[in-house]
């Protein structure tokens, strides 16, 4: 069933359109940065953006910081919201279920396909942004001295290419885990309603609320439990030594959301009437 879901995902033009959109944003930003060479002031704008001007090899990390807060979660929410509700409104859900495909198996396969999508999208963004970065900013430091294409970490210490690859790998893994929470929320809502749009909107409403509360000091008490609280913690991979604290917490909170919401989706979907 997982294979079937993957085939469905990757034979769907939509998948590639979304991935292309995700790759497009960093590309546009890179073009503007490269032509104007005006870096955002420190601490504002996307993370790493001021650093990429001196070394394009860091652009994949900057690209992640660009797509992570909005674009990626939105696309995951849309796809996950469509997962069950979309099949229901297309009339294919009932045919899958009478095949028969177990309802729990269907949910798990949907989630795995979503993870595959996130991986695919991130890798696409990383590859295109690396190429963009090296092409537009160059991998040599701006001073012009011939040096290996080492990247400076946020702590000022050099990261070797191998270290950079490892950290990017960690980033990819962390972002996939972060998106699991989004996927679980949207997937649950997708089993509640037959409207794919409704499910996606519902998930986005949760995320926006969470994002607003994260920036609100008055909500400090609940912040550690918000799904988006540790979304940007992967930036800590680029400190030296790596700051694991938020990364660990981020993974923990996503696993909790995944468990609870997938459980709710399972409890709801397996005992629900499929009337569409």
């Amino acid at each position: 069933m997982i294979r079937v879901e993957l085939v469905k995902m990757f034979r769907r033009p939509r998948t590639y359109v979304v991935a292309a959109l995700l790759c497009g944003l960093p590309l546009i930003v890179a073009v503007f940065l490269a032509t104007t060479r005006i870096p955002p002031p420190p601490g504002q704008g996307g993370a790493f953006l001021s650093a990429v001007l001196s070394n394009g090899a860091l652009y994949p990390a900057a690209a992640m910081a660009l797509v992570m807060p909005v674009f990626l979660p939105v696309s995951v929410a849309v796809l996950a919201g469509d997962a069950v509700a979309g099949e229901a409104s297309a009339g294919t859900l009932r045919y899958l279920l009478v095949r028969p495909v177990g309802r729990t198996r269907l949910l798990v396969a949907k989630l795995v396909a979503l993870v595959a999508f996130v991986l695919f999208a991130i890798v696409a963004v990383l590859v295109t942004s690396y190429l963009t970065g090296v092409a537009l900013f160059g991998s040599e430091p701006a001073a012009g001295v011939a040096l290996p294409a080492d990247v400076t970490s946020m702590s000022g210490v050099t990261i070797t290419p191998a270290g950079l690859a490892l950290r990017l790998l960690g980033t990819v893994a962390y972002i996939v885990v972060s998106m699991l929470g989004v996927a679980a929320i949207a997937l649950f809502l997708s089993t509640v309603t037959d409207s794919a749009l409704g499910a996606a909107m519902g998930a986005l409403a949760v995320l926006v609320t969470s994002q607003v509360l994260v920036t609100l000091d008055a909500a400090a008490a609940v912040q550690p439990y918000l799904p988006t609280r540790y979304w940007l913690a992967w930036i800590d991979f680029f400190r030296d030594p790596i700051l694991w604290r938020d990364i660990e917490r981020g993974v923990g909170i996503q696993v909790v959301y995944l468990l609870v919401l997938l459980g709710a989706a399972w409890a709801n979907f397996t005992t629900r009437d499929v009337t569409n």
Binding site: P41, P42, S155, G156, R239
Partner: peptide
């Protein structure tokens, strides 16, 4: 002591031969 924030870092090193301040934002 590192002061860490979203996308920023400012480190203060105390060593016997003086202090070093690294500001990532200002590079």
């Amino acid at each position: 002591v590192d002061v860490v924030g979203g996308g920023t870092e400012r480190d203060l090193y105390r060593t016997p031969d003086g202090q070093y301040v690294w500001d990532y934002g200002a590079n």
